[in-house]
Structure formats: C-alpha cells, structure tokens
Simulated scan of single mutants.
Amino acid sequence: MDSNLFIGLMSGTSLDGIDAVVVDLSNNFPKLVSSHLEPFPTQLRSELTALTQPGNNEIDRMGCTDIRFAELQVRAIQQLLKKAQLDPQSINAVGSHGQTIRHRPEGDYPFTLQIGDPNTIAEQTGIRVVADFRRRDMAAGGQGAPLVPAFHEYYLKSQESNRIILNIGGISNVTLLEKDINKSTLGYDTGPGNVLMDAWIERHQNQGFDKNGEWASCGNVDQRLLSLMLKTQYLNLTPPKSTGRELFHIGWLDHVLQSLATPIAAADVQATLLEFTATTIGNAIQSHQLEPLELFVCGGGARNQTLMKRLTQILDPTPVITTDSVGLPCEWLEAMAFAWLAKACLDGTCSNLPAVTGANGHRVLGGIYQA
C-alpha cells in the first residue's frame, strides 16, 4: 500500500484509556492528522489492573480480556477514523502497543506480555496491524523497553544541543540525546510517574487522576515516607533497566506505609508521592551531568502543573518545557511513536536501540497481521 497514513495505538501503565492517532509519515517530520482518547470501561480497567499481579484463573481471565481489550481498540480506531473523516482503505497499517499486563525482564526466562489481540483488530477493521513490538528485542537479550527512544532519536536528536526527552506516564522514562554524534542514545525507566498518585487518589477520592496535582499541593511532604521509598533497590540499578506495575503498585505503597510508626494523612501521602516522582526523575537527569541541556517533557504528567513546577525547581537552571514546543504534541507522542514503529517494521528497518534495551544487536520489531 502506498499510503503514508498510519494509526498508532498506545495504552500505558496509567490505564486511563487508549490513545489513538492518525499520523502522516510522508515527510521528514511526523504530522498528527487526528487523535482520539477511548476511555476504559470501569470493569475492563479493573480486570486489566488485576492481571498485572498474580491471581487465580489467570489464563482464562487473560484470554477473555485479550479479546475485550482488542474490541475496545477497534472502537478507538473507528471513532478516530470518523473524526478524521477517513476510511480504513486510506490507512497503511495500525501500530498497536497493546496493554502490558506483565513485564519480567530479569530472571532465567525473561518475558513481557502485551494483550489486545491483533488478529481481532485486523479482522474487524479491515486494516493490517503491526503488534508485539517488545518480545523480539527481549529474545535478543534486551529488556524490551523502553522502545520510544528510537523515535526520539530519529526526530529530535540535535548536533547543536544536548537533549533529554522525559516521558511521564504511569512510569517515567528518559531518553538522552547527546549532541556528540559519536555518543549512543541512552534511555531507561527512572521509576514511577503517575501510577502511584493515580492509585492513591482513586482509593481516597474515587478520581482517576489528580488534576494539575491539586490534591498533592494541599498536602505536606512526609520525609519519613519519602526516605523509605527512595531506598527501593530498582532506583540504584544501572541502565539498561525497565519497570512497571509489577513493582510500583498500591500494594507496594501499602507495605511501605505499614512500616511507619504513625499514620500519615491521605493528602500528605499524595504530596509525598508527587515528590517521589519528581525526586527520582531529578536524580536520574542530574546524574548524567549534561550541560547545557534542553529538557522536553511528554506524557500525561506534562499537564500536571504542580509536578512540572517541582521539576523546574529541582532542575533549575534547566528549563522544563513540553514537546509541544518542538512540534510533537505531548499527550500523543507515544501513540505517534507506535505508528512510526509500524512503518519501520513494514519497511524492514531495525527500530530498537541496543544501548537502551541491552539487546545483542539491532532488530526489526513487530509482527504483521494482514487485513
């Protein structure tokens, strides 16, 4: 197919919904044609959250949820095409990240699992699908994550300045783009982004997220809790490294809280969780001593004004600005990246970065599911 229009689907650790975009990849820079957020039904979100932890009857539950989630992806595509006034025949392919329900990059048999059956998507939309991007990198000895740094490198690396791209989703990750062309791009997960803050406010206020960090701004940082969380072993690992809900989840937070001698007010916990996210991001960025530095933020956390203000304080004098300023809408960047990854797969182009994931070499990522 000659079309340069691709659809990207992304649903990350935050589990707030499916980001769906149409991207025009015909020129030297990706153009966002249309976008749509398809929210998760409450029951499906609960089932996906439960599958991130071991439980009873997992195979049957996963099998059913795999199809239900794929059907929601189909709806997201249909709504997206309706907004864009496009028909399925105008789309070259869908790049589907799927929903990660388990990510175990360490151990004797490392694995990662994303569900959202691509066969169902191809069958019900009539568009070919590229999916399962992570496992080939893992088969080659890599972590299978993060994958978006390749997209960052392709479009945002500059010989004029050192750049870091910070993505704050459920988990936060950084991409280091040094201006020295001889330096490899690096990238890794720094730790939590929104995942703990979202879980805590959902428990106490029945809200999916803390809009602009307003609740966190009402509390006070508890240094005891912050100190305990900062002792988490993952934070001291050297890259390549990646993490997810397997480590940072509400049960983990409860365990840390139970180790304290006295309880903490709920708003103070929220404030401390925001400080935990900001501190771990700040520590990671400052450890690389890239000066001068341009820092660009994307992901849902880029719209959390309290978090962005705190990052600005920690990282001063480095300006903290969003990727909007370089032509990549911060809320949709990851979905756009998976549209690009789909094109790379169809072109037979390698799209992993071994220096980021730890893979033994460059690999073509993704499996193709014909319409």
Rank of each mutant, 00 (worst) to 15 (best):
residue 202 E to P: 00
residue 280 T to I: 09
residue 284 A to K: 01
residue 211 K to I: 13
residue 197 M to S: 10
residue 281 I to A: 09
residue 280 T to K: 07
residue 200 W to P: 06
residue 193 G to K: 05
residue 202 E to R: 14
residue 228 L to W: 00
residue 275 E to L: 13
residue 250 I to T: 08
residue 236 N to R: 15
residue 214 E to S: 12
residue 281 I to E: 02
residue 272 T to H: 02
residue 209 F to H: 12
residue 217 S to D: 12
residue 190 T to F: 08
residue 243 T to M: 11
residue 260 L to S: 06
residue 230 L to M: 15
residue 261 A to D: 14
residue 217 S to V: 01
residue 208 G to H: 04
residue 191 G to W: 01
residue 270 Q to K: 13
residue 278 A to D: 02
residue 217 S to E: 10
residue 215 W to Q: 07
residue 222 D to Y: 00
residue 254 D to Y: 07
residue 233 Q to C: 04
residue 260 L to E: 08
residue 208 G to M: 04
residue 217 S to K: 14
residue 192 P to T: 12
residue 245 R to K: 15
residue 216 A to L: 02
residue 257 L to Q: 11
residue 260 L to H: 02
residue 199 A to D: 06
residue 253 L to T: 06
residue 249 H to L: 11
residue 245 R to Q: 12
residue 226 L to R: 03
residue 229 M to A: 09
residue 230 L to G: 06
residue 272 T to I: 09
residue 238 T to C: 12
residue 238 T to H: 10
residue 204 H to F: 13
residue 208 G to P: 00
residue 257 L to M: 15
residue 195 V to D: 01
residue 270 Q to F: 05
residue 234 Y to H: 08
residue 194 N to L: 13
residue 212 N to D: 14
residue 259 S to E: 13
residue 259 S to L: 14
residue 246 E to V: 14
residue 259 S to T: 15
residue 220 N to Y: 09
residue 270 Q to D: 05
residue 220 N to A: 14
residue 279 T to L: 11
residue 269 V to S: 04
residue 209 F to C: 09
residue 280 T to M: 13
residue 277 T to H: 02
residue 237 L to I: 00
residue 238 T to K: 15
residue 199 A to N: 00
residue 256 V to T: 02
residue 207 Q to C: 01
residue 253 L to Y: 03
residue 235 L to M: 07
residue 199 A to L: 03
residue 201 I to T: 03
residue 221 V to K: 02
residue 284 A to N: 01
residue 201 I to Q: 02
residue 274 L to C: 14
residue 264 I to W: 02
residue 200 W to I: 06
residue 271 A to H: 06
residue 203 R to S: 07
residue 248 F to H: 04
residue 202 E to Y: 11
residue 274 L to E: 04
residue 223 Q to G: 01
